[in-house]
Nucleic acid binder design. Structure first.
Length: 462
RNA sequence: GUGGUUGUAGCUCAGUUGGUUAGAGCACUAGAUUGUGGUUCUAGGGGUCGUGGGUUCGAGCCCCAUCAUCCACCCCA
C-alpha cells in the first residue's frame, strides 16, 4: 500500500492533552452551574434515525445534516432503472436511514417522548455532547463541535427563562469573560409586528432580514425586504420599530403603543416584562459576577423555526465572534413526535467558540497543565527493581507517579519530566538504595533533599 | 451554493526582473557535561517547493488546470 499523508476531515480537530485540560475546564464550569440550578445530565446516541432529524431545521438545515450510508450493499434494493428519474432528495432516504445529530434539542425532544412515562415534569436536563453540521468551516465554525444544552420541558413558567439568563451570566462570569451581552427577544413580538404590517405570512422573511440590521445597516435591510415582497408602505411602518433604541424600559413602552392592536404582540411584551422582573428579583449581590447586561433586542430572530416565545442570544463584546450561546422557548417540539401540549425552553453554550474567545483573551488558568506529580528516575535494573514498590506506594497514597520505563540517560529523563511539567523527580542510585533516603528534586527551584519514602509521600500530598 | 486568500522542512515563514547545490527561527537528535532538566555553545538529520500539465536553454518564481487551506457571504454554536 502506498504511503499516504494522514489528514482529518475538514472542520474537525484533534485535541492535545493541554487543550483537553482547557476544554474540560469549560465543561466542568458550565456543568457545575447547570447542576446548581437543578438540571440533570443525560446523553443520547451520536446517530439518530434520519427521519427524526429531517424537517426540524428548515430546508437549509436539512442539507447540513451528515447522513450515514446504509450498511452492506446499499444499492441492492434499489431499482437502478429508476435512478434516471430519481433526485437526491428522494434517493437519500432510500440509501440512508441514520444521521449524525445536528443539535441536542431535537434528540432531547425525542428522548422526552420515548421516556415520557419515566420522567416527571417539569423535567430539567442538561447535555454536553458533540454535534455535526456539514457546513463550510470558517472562523469559529466547525463541522464537529460541542454544545452544552440545558432545557426544561413541562413548565410554562417564565421563571425558567429568567433562570437561564442567570445561568448564562454565572457560567460565563465563572469562566472569566468580562464583557458579554445577553440579548433577549420574543417570537410573539415579531409575530405582532408582522401582524401590524399586515404581512403575517412573511414573518420569516421579515425576521431574517431585520436580524441582519447590525451587519448590513438599515438600507441593506430595506433592500432585502423589498426583494422579499414587502411594499414601501410596509417598510415605513416597520422602520420606527426596528430602529428602536434606548433602555429596555423605553423600548417596552414604545412597543406597547405600536403593538396595541395585536394581542399576540402584547402577550410577547408582557412575557418579556415578567422575565425582566424575575431576573431583577433573583439577582444576588455577588462581587465575583459581572454586571448583568440583559438587552431587549427586537432585531434578534434566530433561524430555528421552532421557537415560539422567548429567544436568547449571547455575544462577547471583547472578541469578534459569532454568538457563543443561544436558545429559546418552543411550545410544540414534541408535537411532531406525537406528544402534544408540552412546552419547553432551553439554552445552549457554544463551547468551541467560548474556547476560542478565552484563548484570544488568555483567560485559561496556567496551572491547569500538571498531570504527573512525581517521576522516579531509572538508572539500571537494580534501581528499577528497588523503585517498583515505591512507585506503588506513591500511587496507593494518591500521588500521580510514574517510573521512567528505561534506564536512559538522566539528562533525557529530566528533560522528559520538564517537558511534561512534572513537579518532582526522585533520584535513586546506589547511595540512596543503601541508606533508604531518596533524593527528591524540586523541578521548579532545582533544590534537592534526601528524604525517606514516607516523608516524600507526606510532602507530595500536602 | 457564491466570492476571495494562501499552499516552500514537523511548526511559523523568507526566497531578488526566471539563473549553479532552496534558506532562517523554533522543534528534533547528538556532543560540550560518565548522576542533574529549563539557559548557552557546536554539529547533525530532515524538502519530489500541494499535484498535473505548459512556456523556456533553464521554473520555487510566469501561464493553465486541479486539489487542499483559510477568510467573507448564505446560514449558524
Amino acid at each position: 500500500m502506498a504511503i499516504q499523508k494522514p489528514s482529518i476531515p475538514k472542520g474537525t480537530r484533534d485535541f492535545s492533552p493541554q487543550e483537553v485540560v482547557k476544554r474540560n475546564f469549560i465543561f466542568d464550569t458550565i456543568k457545575a452551574v447547570f447542576r446548581k440550578y437543578g438540571y440533570q445530565e443525560i446523553q443520547t446516541p451520536t446517530m439518530e434515525n434520519l427521519d427524526t432529524l429531517t424537517g426540524k431545521y428548515g430546508e437549509e438545515g436539512d442539507q447540513l445534516i451528515f447522513k450515514i450510508l446504509n450498511s452492506g450493499d446499499y444499492l441492492s434494493k434499489l431499482n437502478l432503472d429508476q435512478l434516471q428519474t430519481t433526485t437526491s432528495k428522494t434517493l437519500t432516504p432510500r440509501i440512508s436511514e441514520k444521521a449524525l445529530r445536528y443539535d441536542l434539542t431535537v434528540p432531547f425532544a425525542r428522548f422526552v417522548v420515548m421516556h415520557q412515562n419515566e420522567i416527571n415534569l417539569p423535567f430539567k436536563r442538561f447535555q454536553i455532547q458533540p454535534v455535526w453540521r456539514a457546513d463550510r468551516p470558517q472562523k469559529g465554525r466547525y463541522r464537529e463541535f460541542y454544545q452544552c444544552d440545558a432545557d426544561v420541558v413541562g413548565s410554562e413558567s417564565l421563571l425558567n427563562e429568567a433562570e437561564f439568563v442567570l445561568i448564562y451570566q454565572e457560567a460565563l462570569s465563572n469562566l472569566g469573560l468580562k464583557d458579554f451581552t445577553i440579548k433577549i427577544n420574543n417570537r410573539k413580538i415579531l409575530s405582532g409586528i408582522a401582524e401590524i404590517i399586515g404581512k403575517p405570512e412573511l414573518i420569516v422573511d421579515m425576521t431574517v432580514a431585520i436580524d441582519k440590521l447590525e451587519k448590513i445597516g438599515l438600507d441593506g435591510v430595506v433592500k432585502e425586504l423589498l426583494e422579499k415582497g414587502f411594499r414601501e408602505s410596509d417598510i415605513e411602518k416597520l422602520k420606527p420599530i426596528i430602529e428602536l433604541s434606548g433602555s429596555n424600559e423605553a423600548k417596552i413602552q414604545s412597543l406597547k403603543s405600536v403593538l396595541s392592536s395585536s394581542t399576540t404582540g402584547l402577550k410577547g411584551i408582557e412575557e418579556i416584562e415578567k422575565i425582566f422582573n424575575y431576573t431583577e428579583q433573583l439577582q444576588i449581590e455577588d462581587s465575583k459576577l459581572k454586571t448583568l447586561q440583559l438587552e431587549l433586542d427586537i432585531t434578534l430572530a434566530r433561524g430555528l423555526n421552532y421557537y415560539t416565545g422567548a429567544i436568547f442570544e449571547v455575544k462577547s463584546n471583547e472578541v469578534a465572534m459569532g454568538s457563543i450561546g443561544g436558545g429559546g422557548r418552543y411550545d410544540d417540539l414534541t408535537g411532531m413526535f406525537g406528544l402534544k401540549d408540552l412546552t419547553g425552553v432551553g439554552i445552549s453554550f457554544g463551547a468551541d467558540r467560548i474556547y476560542d474567545v478565552m484563548e484570544e483573551l488568555q483567560l485559561f488558568p496556567d496551572n491547569a497543565g500538571e498531570s504527573t506529580r512525581v517521576l522516579i528516575s531509572n538508572f539500571d535494573e537494580t534501581a528499577e527493581t528497588y523503585a517498583l514498590p515505591l512507585l506503588s506506594a506513591l500511587r496507593r497514597n494518591g500521588v500521580a507517579a510514574e517510573l521512567y520505563p528505561t534506564a536512559a540517560k538522566l539528562k533525557k529523563q529530566l528533560s522528559y519530566a520538564d517537558a511534561k511539567k512534572i513537579s518532582y523527580v526522585i533520584l535513586i542510585g546506589s547511595e540512596e538504595m543503601e541508606s533508604g533516603l531518596l533524593s527528591l528534586k524540586n523541578m521548579q527551584s532545582g533544590e534537592q533533599q534526601k528524604l525517606d519514602i514516607a516523608a516524600i509521600i507526606q510532602l507530595l500530598n500536602s
